[in-house]
């Protein structure tokens, strides 16, 4: 099953993920004005939330990561040497 982890320190409470998610996986926590995961079981790992999150505050675990053959392997190689 998909596991979603929200970095509460990074989350800016913009609610973009809440609006963007088609399966209502997220909700705003009114108490601290941060997003919270309420429906993890319906997450299909489309990762629209990752793309829209301005703070990169989320992490998905145990998902199928789609192939990214469009990225140059030379770029990946260079990045691996830097990071």
């Amino acid at each position: 099953m998909v596991e979603i982890i929200i970095d509460e320190d990074a989350c800016v409470g913009c609610a973009s993920c809440v609006e963007d998610c088609p399966n209502d996986v997220y909700e705003m926590d009114e108490a601290n004005n941060k997003t919270k995961v309420v429906n993890e079981v319906d997450c299909m790992a489309c990762l629209s939330c990752h793309e829209i999150c301005p703070a990169q505050a989320m992490e998905h675990r145990d998902i199928h990561v789609a192939k990214r053959l469009y990225i140059d392997r030379k770029v990946n190689y260079a990045l691996k040497r830097i990071i």
Binding site: P22, M44, A45, C46, L47, S48, H50, E51, I63, H64, V65, A66
Partner: peptide, 10 residues
């Protein structure tokens, strides 16, 4: 098409 995302489309 129901939804498109960078990692999966429904």
């Amino acid at each position: 098409i129901d939804h498109v995302g960078p990692n999966a489309c429904l």
